[in-house]
């Protein structure tokens, strides 16, 4: 077989001076790298139609069947951010968006374990850019995919008649019910504090909920993605993953405010109520729920941001070449 050499002209464009090589690690280089990683995630997603479909069908089954069935049995009273009685379908829509994010995060975590076994993760990690930057880019790639999935779901929900109401004002919502186990150490707020931030121009009012939910989805997606990244670094083999799905996804989803308002749960069991309130997923759901109604739930926002930072730091530590768990464990296969 013939292996054409670099021709003189090819070499001139292909080769680069050391100065050019250095500049590849500059701001433009970072941006190119970030874009490349995110684009690959999106491309991969678009090439897997079954993944796209299953990601869409899962929440729709919950919406069309589960929620319709429970509509009569579970009445939702007027609790913030709702100002009228809402249908059960409308109540669980934010929870289903969070479910999309959760599944997507765990799926990309799964693919990272798989990548590690095949070597794709290794090619990512030999990039000259800092490892924390690479991992964060990969995470944001996953979040971009999740955002697309969430909007596909919102689109179908819209045709089903489930949509956020028009929003006239963007508000800050703060309500904190101190957990009982904290005793009197944490102050409790008996009434929610609502501050109006700014009013929405009238032409934007119908779409404001959809716009507000974008940053909420990104934040919640980052938190769940960082958690999944951490989990992926802790799992040695692909086979162990099914167990993690059972021990992470289901407890996180069911022990949260995704399917039922927490006050109803408290009537059933105070313990369960407190467990749900320790679950970061609850705050991801609430952040999305309030955002759809034009409100920023400050407590949820703070908890989601803090958890993201915590999980991300732990994941970066786990992938750190000298301190991390990969080194201690003997590295990925191969």
């Amino acid at each position: 077989m013939s292996t054409p050499a670099f021709s003189a002209t090819a070499a001139a464009t292909f080769d680069e001076s050391s100065a050019m090589a250095r500049s590849r690690l500059g701001v433009a280089g970072y941006f190119a790298c970030f874009k490349g990683i995110v684009w690959r995630e999106i491309l991969r997603y678009l090439h897997q139609r079954e993944r796209f479909l299953s990601a869409l069908v899962r929440p729709l089954i919950w919406l069309f069947i589960f929620a319709a069935g429970f509509r009569q049995t579970l009445g939702v009273s007027i609790i913030p951010p709702y100002q009228t009685y809402v249908l059960y379908e409308e109540f669980i829509a934010p929870g289903l968006i969070a479910m999309i994010l959760l599944f997507n995060a765990m799926q990309s975590s799964l693919s990272m374990v798989y990548d590690r076994e095949t070597g794709t993760m290794r090619t990512l990690l030999v990039s000259p850019f800092p490892r924390s930057f690479l991992l964060l880019s990969k995470l944001l790639g996953g979040v971009s995919v999740a955002l697309m999935q969430a909007f596909a779901f919102l689109f179908v929900a819209y045709w089903w008649g489930i949509e956020p109401p028009p929003i006239t004002d963007i508000k800050l919502f703060t309500f904190f019910d101190a957990p009982s186990w904290a005793g009197t150490a944490l102050p409790s707020m008996s009434d929610p504090i609502v501050n109006t931030l700014f009013s929405v121009p009238s032409f934007l009012q119908p779409a404001a909920g959809y716009i507000m939910v974008i940053p909420a989805i990104i934040l919640a997606g980052l938190m769940l993605g960082a958690l999944a990244l951490l989990i992926s670094s802790l799992i040695k083999q692909l086979e162990n993953f099914a167990g993690v799905m059972n021990f992470v996804i289901f407890p996180m989803f069911f022990a949260s405010s995704a399917l039922y308002p927490l006050w109803r749960l408290r009537e059933a069991s105070t313990l369960l109520y407190e467990i749900c309130r320790l679950n970061p997923f609850t705050y991801a759901v609430e952040l999305i729920r309030f955002a759809l109604y034009g409100q920023v739930d400050t407590i949820s926002l703070a908890i989601v941001v803090a958890c993201t930072a915590l999980f991300l730091a732990a994941a970066v530590f786990a992938y750190n070449p000298s301190k991390g768990l990969i080194a201690r464990r003997g590295g990925p296969g191969g």
Partner: peptide
């Protein structure tokens, strides 16, 4: 597409 991704990992523009 594969190679462009890996070039991006080294900081090359599209």
């Amino acid at each position: 597409q594969n190679l462009k991704y890996h070039a991006a990992l080294h900081g090359y523009s599209n």
